[in-house]
């Protein structure tokens, strides 16, 4: 469980986007599961994303017209999993983040903490190796923040790598290692 810290504009989100194959990089090398990610086309990027990576965003980024369960099931839809299996697994992971009773709710019927937990369940459902979290607690109060971090910690203990971008010292300190960025360089 790694925290990436740095002031605004220091390049932490850019680093995360590169790690998430959402953005390209100009120089250097990126190995994911032993394979170079250099010059990847969109189609292969999508394949790696759906196989190895899960995303958690500051603003949750749930699809507004889909229920919590459908949001969680979305990555599975793009993996070509059958509808029945999708929903089963989505419910399983909603249960894991403690939101089974909220499965049929739309995002705007959920609190900030609940939305982030749905987003985490969504990141988990594709059985990723790495979860990339961009300011996962940025929009949450401190009590909820700690709950969410506790959940991420639990998942890390289960063997999933966590990369958490944050600018909050107390959040960063909950991680095993802190990488500080300054003007695009690791300090």
């Amino acid at each position: 469980m790694v925290a990436i810290m740095g002031s605004s504009g220091s390049g932490k989100s850019t680093l995360l986007n590169i790690l998430g194959l959402l953005d390209g990089f100009d120089s250097g090398e990126y190995l994911l599961a032993g394979e170079s990610m250099d010059g990847l086309n969109e189609r292969s990027a999508a394949k790696y994303r759906s196989r190895f990576l899960g995303f958690v965003f500051q603003s949750f980024n749930l699809v507004g017209f889909k229920t919590a369960m459908e949001n969680v099931a979305l990555p599975l839809y793009y993996q070509g999993v059958s509808r029945k299996e999708r929903n089963k697994r989505a419910l399983e992971f909603l249960d894991k983040v403690g939101l089974l009773d909220w499965a049929e709710h739309l995002p705007n019927q959920l609190s900030g903490g609940q939305k982030q937990r749905v987003a985490i369940a969504r990141a988990l459902v594709g059985k990723p190796k790495v979860i990339l979290a961009d300011e996962p607690t940025g929009a949450l109060d401190s009590k909820t923040s700690y709950e969410v971090m506790g959940l991420l910690r639990e998942l890390n203990n289960e063997g999933i790598t966590m990369v958490v971008v944050t600018h909050e010292q107390d959040i960063a300190e909950m991680c095993d290692r802190i990488i500080r960025l300054h003007d695009g360089q690791i300090a």
């Binding site: 980024n61 699809v63 979305l74 990555p75 793009y78 993996q79």
Partner: peptide, 16 residues
């Protein structure tokens, strides 16, 4: 735009 971006992050290919 945002919804489509989320779908892309969730593994949707441009073709999809």
């Amino acid at each position: 735009t945002k919804e489509l971006g989320i779908r892309r992050a969730m593994g949707a290919t441009p073709r999809t």
